[in-house]
């Protein structure tokens, strides 16, 4: 099959660009650890309230880990626990969340914290809150009639 000279140039350029994109993503993900949230741990969705760490939702300081805080969220139709939380600026936080019923989203608007919560699974993501201010936590995955009322708030303070 014959390719026009210009088409060869175009495809080499195009495929080359795709390879550059993939390399940037791959190095960032596998070498720097910026993987999308992909926690493999599971939990019985009906026993969420009695199991650690979900029996005590909220922010907790931890020692001897790569991150300084753990922020535990429990989602259910149509609210998050806790409904409001304060985080010191610059804190490296592991967000740990799960759902007690249907699928929910967990998005902290204006940040890269964005993950799916699915019944039976735990979702985790490590994030450093470098900017002060109020951040809206909202459900970005359809979960029922009150979906758009489902919110929480993270306040990053000095």
């Amino acid at each position: 099959m014959h390719l026009h000279k210009f088409e060869k140039i175009w495809l080499i350029f195009g495929i080359g660009s795709l390879l550059v994109f993939l390399t940037v993503l791959g190095v960032s993900a596998f070498y720097l650890g910026n993987q999308p949230p992909s926690c493999l741990a599971t939990i019985d969705p009906e026993k969420v309230d009695t199991q650690a760490p979900f029996n005590e939702p909220g922010l907790k300081k931890v020692e001897g880990k790569e991150w300084e805080y753990e922020l535990v969220f429990v989602a259910s139709a149509f609210n998050y626990t806790p409904g409001e939380v304060q985080i010191p600026k610059g804190a490296k936080v592991k967000v740990i969340a799960t759902t007690k019923d249907v699928i929910h989203g967990f998005e902290v608007a204006g940040t890269n914290v964005n993950m799916m919560l699915e019944p039976g699974y735990i979702s985790e993501l490590v994030y450093t809150f470098n900017k002060t201010g109020e951040f809206l936590v909202l459900c970005n995955e359809y979960c029922g009639v009150g979906h758009h009322m489902m919110t929480s708030k993270i306040e990053v303070v000095e």
Binding site: I15, L18, P36, S38, L40, A41
Partner: peptide, 22 residues
Amino acid sequence: LEPGIDPAWKFLQVVLTFLVVI
């Protein structure tokens, strides 16, 4: 952004997705 799937498998499918751009 879903739990339960290893990120390496996700990345593999990302690579395949980029191939469908060609």
